[in-house]
Design a protein around this nucleic acid. Structure first.
Lengths: 177, 177
DNA sequence: AAAGTTTCGTTCGGATCCGAACGATTATTG
DNA sequence: CAATAATCGTTCGGATCCGAACGAAACTTT
């Protein structure tokens, strides 16, 4: 069964509970508690949507090219910025330095990028795509972007923009903490 | 450095590139390519917001109780539904059955929940919270919910509701694939 | 110039995450 | 009733994910 897919269906033909059922059970469980339902719904749906999208794009677009979601994100960051320091890649990709070391190891092993010591500061490491990596990005990005359009097809362009704006505000707020 | 935190700041006092810089670099790199910018922005921001929120809540609320994000989600699902089959927990939590086995193992080891074979079907496993697990949920849920309110404080109640609605539409669309 | 401090990337242990394969169990078919 | 098919949870190998600690390198202070 794929990530978050609900191929497995229970007796009445549905996977997990409907949203209405879940909210009903939650209301019952939390009866007597003061709950910020809007905030809970916002957080839960942000996380659920992110996982659903990641799973879907990983399975349909990335796995056929032997890529993981994070491998793809790292390649994308290096593709956009060119020769870039690993600490910046970790920041842009939103992963820890320790995790980046492992992901870069995997991508290097696949011949998609190369690391080298910074000429001025031996503590730092620079990465760049290999020709093979660049070719993969040129081939795969349009396919990935088309898939991004498909997974968000239920939203109008105005909705997508509004969604992105709201989510940027959330990220900015948390980054201020 | 914490997950996605930008405690590390580069020379000019900023962490990762600004959004404007990133979009500029993206436009330059993708010059000549037909790009659905709104879809890309929607997907990137959904993923970024989910990770930022997960990291923040894990660090500030869950880690002090020796919980991971997914451990929390699994406990929450079992708390809401009571005695529940593991296959349903995996679905509700949005993780694979293999992953759930490991997470349940961890939570069981911590004395927070218990598993038992289904009385009617020996293939199935049921899980329920222990008294310790129930106590933890009653204590921690209000704290977690308050943190949910803080991370989404930049949004109005109407915005939170609209966000949740848009994201539910995205999940429903992908689940139809 | 030497000592102390800070920064960088890697390593480590523990946790999670997946799909595929497996054994055990149940359901279906002939 | 026996054979076959389907379902369930676990195991497996590989990948990711984290924070803390470490060694090496650079910076700052004395």
């Amino acid at each position: 069964m794929s990530r978050y897919a609900d191929a497995a269906r229970d007796g009445d033909g549905r996977g997990h509970h409907t949203l209405a059922e879940t909210e009903s059970a939650v209301a019952e469980r939390l009866d007597g508690m003061s709950v910020d339902v809007e905030s809970m719904a916002a957080v839960q749906n942000i996380y659920r949507a992110a996982n659903t999208i990641r799973n879907h794009l990983e399975q349909t677009v990335l796995a056929p090219h032997d890529l993981t979601w994070t491998g793809w994100v790292v390649l994308w960051v290096v593709w956009i910025w060119g020769d870039i320091e690993t600490r910046h890649v970790a920041e842009e990709a939103g992963i820890s330095k320790g995790t980046l070391t492992g992901v870069i190891g995997t991508l290097e092993k696949r011949g998609l990028l190369l690391r080298r010591t910074h000429p001025d500061d031996a503590r730092r490491v620079l990465v760049a795509l290999t020709p093979k990596g660049r070719k993969l990005m040129n081939t795969l990005f349009p396919i990935f972007n088309a898939a991004e359009a498909r997974v968000t097809a239920s939203l109008s362009t105005a909705d997508k923009t509004h969604l992105a704006t709201s989510l940027r505000a959330v990220v900015a707020e948390v980054d201020e903490f």
